[in-house]
Design a protein around this nucleic acid. Structure first.
Lengths: 329, 329
DNA sequence: CTTCGTTCTAAAAACGATTAGAACACAGCC
DNA sequence: GGCTGTGTTCTAATCGTTTTTAGAACGAAG
């Protein structure tokens, strides 16, 4: 394996010049540049990243900590982030914290060990409470989850407003007893519940929200219980794609058809929501933009550590499908 | 930030002893060990990974190169791999090659630059042809895709047999004009098509297989065309979850119900397949086992570079649902 | 009391790059 | 010619570990 000194010898220059050409840090004359590049090509030289990282103290690596990559929302977001990262010659370390604060802490320590350039984090509730960027030895950008008063760079959906609009849509179509299953372990689920409650209260209706852990299994059983209550809700609203999946399965099990027997709406425009007859009304999240915005924010923060804290709020789009059709009277 | 020499000073020993205690490479006396560990804890010392990697020439990092993490199959597999990796204190670099041989080559070069301990690869067709582990400076384990004669460690589904069983299941339920949409860009799709064709031929039926690129969009339009042909197929078989999704959407668009109008079966036991009435019959892939087996194979190969080449073949399980119910006569 | 072997520790040499700071070349000016 | 300034290049120090090498300490055997 060729080393930098081999390249220097081949090009007839010093190792410093080779390094300068390759990193592009300082001015190098045209002739030297050409000779170095020729030597690099001739020897198929590739810098040793470990050595480079040790000396330069930069890793060009970022961390991405989410609850679970199998959650389709995070799958999409992570893909967007990785695409941008690799274009910029950055490495991405992906971590699944499983909503577990301890695991999350372990991974954040790991990020420190790796000396990452920055981290994109979807924090657990407990970490989000009182979150301060200054507590971390690297820049942090929050994604998907963020409180109103969190003083940190963040990219989020307009959760409250999206839930509000979704709820109003159901109300306007004649539904009144609207139940809501929301993920209580994340700030996002809570905010969506707030939006739902605001819409209900604003229309003189009584909110009936049930907290669930954001898993398909739990959502299914909880929804099953809800459906056995009297009077049965006229509509259900699910605060995330996974919960929506569980609720839909429960409706199947209970042999309830929508929208005839019960209306249905939720978050995340997953492929199957248009496949389940007659299609499920959802708020579509712009996952690609969320990911891109997050890494862009991180890039800027790395370049300008002292710049003002920014928050990017993206609007969710209401996709109306058959599951929320006007209620028969 | 504390360094190893600070720890040595605090413990009253040499830096070498500290290193030996922490890496566990050589024998150290009990008293020294205790003093070092105490000093490490007192100073909250964490070794600098860049320095360690430079000197030791090992990175404890593996690469995972798949076509697209958004493909649910790879999402599941990658999660399983990452879980095991982090337990072993390994880092994972995830790469999406998008079935693009050039991109795949770039990422493999990147793996060399990173000096990874090994790579788990789901290769494109062109790379798989004539694949030789010796051509790479690190151990490679193939996953999901592998030819009969590939001389490399690999973990795959019994594609041919699974497809055969799935096809026979349709035939036994009375279907005869069975069409097959298979992903032609991967070895896996081709093998499944082979299994399908074998079953058809073995029962005196004429296979009608159509190659598609393994995307939802292409599968949908291709299936749409297929459905307009006369006579219309009595059943359709899709060689992957994404293709199955496209086909299902096409049936929706054409207002065809299954199994009354047309039967349906495919690969990958995705959540929505049991949600779409009356449920879609599929071959369930043991994604978790696939991932675990792959990283286990890699670990063994790293420990014993000269051991014999292994191939792990996992059996797909037939999940019978409503979409393949016995044909009405 | 030496000699040998064992077990552990210390000092110093890698690992392969980046980057200060010194050195150099050259031009322009007095 | 000497001096200064500018732009480039070189030498050597440095990053923070691991690993090699040499040697100290100690006990047992002769």
């Amino acid at each position: 394996m060729a080393q930098i000194k081999d390249v220097a010898k081949q090009a007839g220059v010093s190792v410093a010049s080779v390094s300068r050409v390759l990193t592009g840090q300082a001015k190098v004359s045209e002739t030297t540049t050409q000779r170095v590049l020729a030597a690099v090509k001739a020897l198929d030289y590739r810098p040793d990243l470990a050595a480079r990282r040790l000396r330069s103290r930069r890793t060009d690596t970022i961390g991405l900590i989410v609850s679970d990559i199998r959650n389709p929302f995070f799958t999409e977001v992570s893909r967007a982030i990785e695409d941008v990262a690799y274009q910029q010659q950055w490495r991405v370390i992906l971590c699944n914290a499983d909503e577990n604060p301890d695991k999350e802490a372990v991974y954040l320590d790991l990020m420190r060990d790796e000396n990452v350039s920055g981290v994109i984090l979807s924090p657990t509730l407990s970490r989000l409470a009182g979150f301060r960027p200054a507590d971390y030895p690297f820049p942090v950008v929050l994604i998907d989850r963020c409180d109103r008063d969190t003083a940190a760079d963040a990219v989020v959906l307009d959760n409250l407003d999206s839930a509000y609009r979704l709820t109003v849509h159901l109300i306007e179509n004649g539904y009144q007893r609207i139940g809501c299953l929301y993920g209580a372990v994340s700030a996002t689920g809570r905010q969506r519940q707030e939006g739902y409650a605001a819409a209900m209260n604003g229309h003189g209706l009584v909110p009936q929200a049930v907290a669930v852990s954001a898993t398909v299994d739990h959502a299914r059983t909880t929804a099953g219980n809800l459906l056995r209550q009297e009077p049965r809700p006229q509509a259900l609203l699910a605060s995330s794609g996974l919960i929506l999946l569980g609720v839909t399965e429960a409706l199947r099990t209970a042999r309830l058809r929508f929208p005839e027997d019960i209306a249905l709406a939720g978050f995340d425009d997953l492929p199957w929501t248009r496949l389940v007859e007659p299609g499920i009304t959802v708020i579509a999240q712009p996952t690609d933009d969320l990911g891109r915005a997050a890494i862009d924010l991180l890039r800027q923060r790395i370049l300008q550590p002292e710049q003002a804290v920014r928050r990017v709020v993206l609007r969710g789009e209401l996709e109306v499908r058959g599951s929320s059709l006007k209620m028969m009277v």
